[in-house]
Amino acid sequence: MAGGLPHPVLWSTLLHVDQVTIGGATVEFKHVFYTWCAMAVLFSLGLLVRGGLKLVPGGIQNVFEVVIGGLEDFVVTNIGEDGRKVFPLLGGIFLFILFQNLLGLVPGCDAPTANVNTNAAMAVFVFLYYNYQGIKRWGPGYIKHFMGPMWWLTPLMLPLELISHTARPLSLTLRLFGNIRGEEIVMVLFFLMAPIVGTIPVYFLFLLGKVLQSFIFFMLTMIYLKGAFEHAH
């Protein structure tokens, strides 16, 4: 169900996992099911690549080396050598969100990121993680990141920084949710108007949109980590 519109057919409906009863409470389970699908795809790809590691890469190993190598270079040029420590998380976030987004393009599947709860969970995790890294790096001196460039500006800058830091998970959540949910709704609309012919052109546009959204989430996480790592101004 995308925005009240009937979804043509979903695997989760066929498997009766749209809603599950846990401890007497009926909860929406569709996005959890599709998150698990994305995880299963990623795990099996990872195991496949690890099982057949070769010195001269070929096929799927080549793709992974290009994607992950490129992202690592990007992170290291932006954050510096500290970036290598947090790169597993950043690359993981990028691939995870990418596969979650792309699930929306697979017939019979729905993007789990079209549900606000999935995005909120990831955004809150990112928020906690970069603050944890900042505190680990600077100790109590991390508070200096919130106090502005000059000491007499502190009463003004403290609430300002507090607000802009709290706004980060909100904007991360809403951006991903709005984009992916909107794409799902448009896709269902096009499908209702002209079943197969209408959906194929928008596939290309949405492929770009979904890659871009996962890259934006990854890039913002990187910028926040960079802000936590570098010296307070």
Binding site: F74, I163, A167, L174
Partner: peptide, 21 residues
């Protein structure tokens, strides 16, 4: 990609800070 993402991010950054405030 970097430039497009940074440009695309600006609008919502302004709105979300206002809403949180």
């Amino acid at each position: 990609l970097d430039a497009i993402s940074t440009a695309g991010v600006i609008g919502l950054h302004m709105v979300s800070a206002t809403v949180v405030g």
